[in-house]
Design a protein around this nucleic acid. Structure first.
Lengths: 203, 203, 203, 203
DNA sequence: CATGAATGAGTATTCATTCAT
DNA sequence: AATGAATGAATACTCATTCAT
């Protein structure tokens, strides 16, 4: 009736094989041969599903971004809504969970992907810009509501984003305990009060 | 007395040409040809000064790490010393200044260098581990002195390091204002109090 | 009664699509994909009608040669026949008309087809040999009848055939006016008197 | 002092190997591997001398065109000059001789080169256009001097050029006797008087 | 009859590295 | 020390052809 595998199945196999190859060998070192060997298909089959190596990586990133979009929800204020900090916490927690579920993609998209291929860089750059804008707008609202301290939001965004990225990367690398609760709590503590507590630190 | 160029001068020319080539084309896309063309020497000459492409990059990173080591000083407690927070601020500021002086290296070492070449990764990994340990030990002391809030230090390190990296990269990329004072102040504010100020955020 | 398309119709569609693809992209650059896309059928269908790419081209050439055979008639001498030169002129004119009707095939068969594929070369070679023999025999009869000047007939054939080919190719390419009368007249003038008229040219 | 071979020698070796490979296998079927094998150098060496396959072919054609340019001289009228027809004959003869000296290039440039690669076509097209213009201008002068019969010069050019090409190709292919005198005489006879001599041919 | 997914041999091109001069 | 010609392994990508459905 149909082929041995549906097109969607084949595509997924190639996607997973590509992900594994990229994670194992690095983005530029992984070859199309590695990918097709992993998927158990012939060389040419790859090109029936993806126009080139860059395209698989883009598809991988796109999937991850879509999954991320599902987990992050705008914070809504209202009497029937959970308190904002709880909503924020839920968002952080869902992102941490996603990262722990997809460690390979996290390594690729957050750590490995820059500076390898100018075209890929564009993709990543667009992604991060979107993320930055999202956080920036949230911070702006927060500042207007006096929930977020005043300050240069671009720097806040950078610290927040960089901190989150590094935590997730470290978690999937096993450098820090892969417990979403612990990680989420620490991130929230950082956001809520920073690191330093003792007034004696002040000059 | 000596040749037109001393060995050290040639080496430096190659180093600078390599840095520029890496920054402009990316670590894996930059070729030895790009480097020697930039340095104005013949192809073979490169190999008189560096064993291979990886070695130039390592030398570049080593220089940067050495410069970093010079700027970061342990925080010393004592009646005749500046207050700890001021010492911390000075460290942060010197690092920010170094980053702004060497934007190319920052892009390379902090943003582009992972996932390209397993050997290079090792180098970077060792560097980051050293940095992590340094920060971790500082935090440990801080916690013992009740200057740093309790919590999982590995996560704290990750957030702090990731946040710092991202800020520096964004600064050299021009995404955020390249004013060391502004950047330093924002980082210190983040460390001192996080982001969130309003109690209404709590559930 | 029958399918949507008869076998012959499908075959013709493929043939025309192949002709267009060959003319547009060149014989070796045109792919089977181009052909089936032009014919609106699936890849495998092509191989139900032709054994391979070479076979379509052969079929195309065969059709053209057959059409050519219909237009070229032996010159017959006799009291009730038109004068020989008129018969020759009619032959030339019919060939010119065929060429102008089938410009694509002319480009393919007369201009593009050599040196691409050894197998195709054989086909063309056989065709040209046939044509050469035909002309050669006609010239032989002409010489015996003192209608054609004496001389090395192989060279005469080559000049005549090459001249005719180039005129036709130029005509379908639009380099010379596509008027069969003008072209035929010029060819006849050339055959009848060459190019040079002035005795002063002689040494 | 210098390399084993000078750059010019290597280049010539590659050029000759390319010519042989192109002639033997056809323009599109010949691979870079064939060429380097013929020249006895490594794969990469080819690309030190030519940017790609098209570039070698262009170089080959350019050389041939230059050689052709040396052999063809404008016809000069004057009391101390040889008669025009003798000058024309010398030109024809020198071209025939060149063709017989460089049979490979003749096959390539005159017979095989069209329709294979659009880029190569441009090259050839430019060549032929130059040749056409040259002949066209000569014919125009000839017509003004009443040395050439009136008529559509574009068609005359096509017949003349096509005829010459075919004769040369046939000669290098061995289809007609490779005697420059015979060939030249026949070409001159054709130009001077065409093929048909008997008035009875006229209607 | 028709399909189109899968195949895999074939090829151009790049580039780090070597070494004779 | 410096050169730069030469190397050749490595790799992405194409496309004619097959065959299970």
């Amino acid at each position: 009736m149909s082929q041995r595998k549906t097109k969607a199945e084949r595509r997924r196999e190639l996607l997973m094989a590509a992900r594994d190859a990229f994670v194992e060998k690095g983005l530029s070192a992984a070859t199309v041969d590695d990918i097709v060997a992993g998927a158990g298909v012939a060389r040419g089959t790859f090109y029936l599903y993806f126009s080139d190596k860059r395209a698989v990586f883009e598809a991988l990133v796109d999937e991850f971004l879509a999954a991320l979009g599902v987990r992050v929800r705008s914070i809504v204020l209202g009497p029937d809504e959970p308190p904002p900090r709880a909503q924020l916490r839920d968002n952080v927690r869902r992102v941490v969970e996603l990262a722990l579920e997809e460690p390979g993609i996290v390594k690729l998209a957050l750590a490995d992907a820059t500076g390898v291929d100018p075209d890929l860089d564009d993709k990543l750059h667009a992604f991060y810009e979107g993320l930055r804008s999202l956080i920036d707008e949230s911070l702006e609202v927060g500042q207007q509501l006096k929930m977020v301290r005043p300050g240069d939001r671009r720097v806040m965004v950078a610290i927040g984003l960089g901190g989150l990225k590094e935590v997730l990367v470290d978690a999937v690398r096993g450098h820090i305990e892969a417990d979403p609760d612990v990680i989420t709590d620490e991130i929230m503590a950082f956001l809520a009060g920073g690191l330093l507590v003792d007034e004696r630190l002040d000059g």
